[in-house]
Design a protein around this nucleic acid. Structure first.
Length: 320
DNA sequence: CGCATGCCGAC
RNA sequence: CUUGUCGGCAUGCG
C-alpha cells in the first residue's frame, strides 16, 4: 500500500522525461526483452562484451540525490515527509539486499543509467549502424561492442567513459565481478539466468547461443527431488500435481534461445524419477519402460510435457 | 472483461 | 529465511 503510493510519487519523476518526444513513459522492460536485445546484438557481431556488476544501494548521499530529484517535481510537504521517513527506515547503513524499499528505488534510480547508455549508443553510431549496444535489467548490465578490429579502441574508450559517468551518477562498479569478454575466443558470460556463447553452426556460420545456466538447472532438479522425497509413498497423481506447476513455470521462463537440450535432460530426469517411484510402489525393479509407455505417463497421468522452446520466428501475420 | 488462488523467473 | 518490484503461466469463480 505504502509502496504503491511511493511508486506513484517516483514514477513520474524518473520516467516522464526519459523520452521527451514521446508521451513520456518508456515501454516496460522485461527480462525477456533484455535477453533478446543481447541475442540480437550478438547476431550483429557485437561480440566484445563488457559485463558490469553494479552496486547501487542507497546510502545517505544517494537519498539526498533522490530527494532533490523528487523535490523538483513534487511540492507536497506531506509526501516529501513520508518519503524521507521511508528512506530513513530503509537506509539504516548497510541496507540489506532484499530490503523493503531498496530494490524498487534502485530500479528507478538506474533509469538514469539507461539514459547515459542510450547516449553512449548514439554517440558511437555511424549512420544506421550502431557499434555499441547494451542491455540492462535492474542492476545487471552488459554492453556489447563491435567485433571489428578497427573498433577495438571502442572497448577501452567506452569502458572509460562509462566509468566516469557511473561515478557522476554515484553508481559503484564491483570490479571483482566486472570483466570484458571476447565471445569470438569462446568465452562466455551470463545474464539473467542464461549463459551466452558464440558458436559456429554446422554450416560454419557464427551465431549466438544461449542456454539456462547449469546452476539454475541443478537448483530446479534439487527442488523436484525434494518433492519426490517428501511424497515417496503417496499416489503418483499427487506427486505429479506438485511437479507440474514447478516445471511449467520454469520451462516457461527458459523457453527461449537454445534450451532444448537442457529441457531434454530435465524431461528425461523427471520421467525416470516418476517411473522409479511407480515401480517401487509395485515392488518392481528398474524403470519398467515396457510396462508404462510414454503416452500413458504424459497423456493419462498428465505429467507435464510442455518442454518446447518458443522461437519468435517470422512474425505471424495478423490473420483476418 | 473482472476477481481470486497457486506456481515459475529476473533483480 | 524473510521483504519488494516487475514479468510470465496455470487453475478456479462471477
Amino acid at each position: 500500500m505504502v509502496q504503491g503510493a511511493l511508486k506513484l510519487i517516483l514514477e513520474p519523476v524518473f520516467e516522464a522525461d526519459f523520452q521527451p518526444g514521446s508521451f513520456g513513459y518508456r515501454p516496460k522492460r522485461t527480462a525477456h526483452d533484455a535477453i533478446k536485445r543481447v541475442a540480437e546484438a550478438i547476431v550483429q557481431r557485437k561480440v566484445r562484451v563488457l559485463d558490469f556488476d553494479l552496486r547501487a544501494y542507497f546510502d545517505n548521499v544517494r537519498h539526498d540525490r533522490l530527494l532533490a530529484k523528487v523535490a523538483q517535481r513534487v511540492d507536497d510537504a506531506d509526501i516529501m515527509h513520508l518519503l524521507k521517513i521511508m528512506l530513513k527506515a530503509a537506509g539504516k547503513k548497510g541496507v540489506p539486499q532484499g530490503g523493503v524499499i531498496s530494490p524498487l528505488l534502485s530500479n528507478l534510480y538506474l533509469n538514469e543509467v539507461d539514459k547515459m547508455l542510450e547516449r553512449a549508443r548514439e554517440v558511437t553510431r555511424n549512420g544506421k549502424y550502431t557499434h555499441v549496444e547494451y542491455a540492462r535489467f535492474a542492476d545487471d548490465l552488459v554492453v556489447l561492442i563491435d567485433a571489428y578490429k578497427r573498433h577495438d579502441w571502442l572497448i577501452g574508450a567506452v569502458t572509460k567513459r562509462l566509468r566516469e559517468e557511473f561515478a557522476k551518477l554515484q553508481v559503484e562498479i564491483n570490479d571483482e565481478k566486472s570483466r570484458t569478454v571476447n565471445l569470438e575466443r569462446g568465452e562466455s558470460f551470463s545474464f539473467l539466468g542464461f549463459d551466452f556463447r558464440y558458436l559456429r553452426s554446422l554450416r560454419g556460420a557464427m551465431r549466438p547461443h544461449y542456454t539456462p545456466k547449469l546452476k539454475k538447472r541443478t537448483a530446479l532438479l534439487r527442488e523436484l527431488k525434494e518433492v519426490f522425497r517428501r511424497h515417496r509413498s503417496q499416489p503418483i497423481g499427487r506427486v505429479i500435481s506438485l511437479l507440474n506447476p514447478k516445471l511449467r513455470g520454469w520451462v516457461n521462463y527458459f523457453a527461449v534461445g537454445h534450451s532444448s537440450e537442457c529441457f531434454s535432460y530435465i524431461k528425461d530426469w523427471v520421467e525416470k524419477k516418476v517411473r522409479r517411484q511407480l515401480a517401487q510402489a509395485q515392488k518392481r525393479k528398474g524403470f519398467c519402460w515396457k510396462r508404462w509407455n510414454r503416452a500413458w505417463l504424459y497423456d493419462t497421468l498428465g505429467l507435464f510435457n510442455g518442454y518446447r522452446v518458443r522461437h519468435d520466428g517470422p512474425k505471424a501475420a495478423p490473420a483476418g
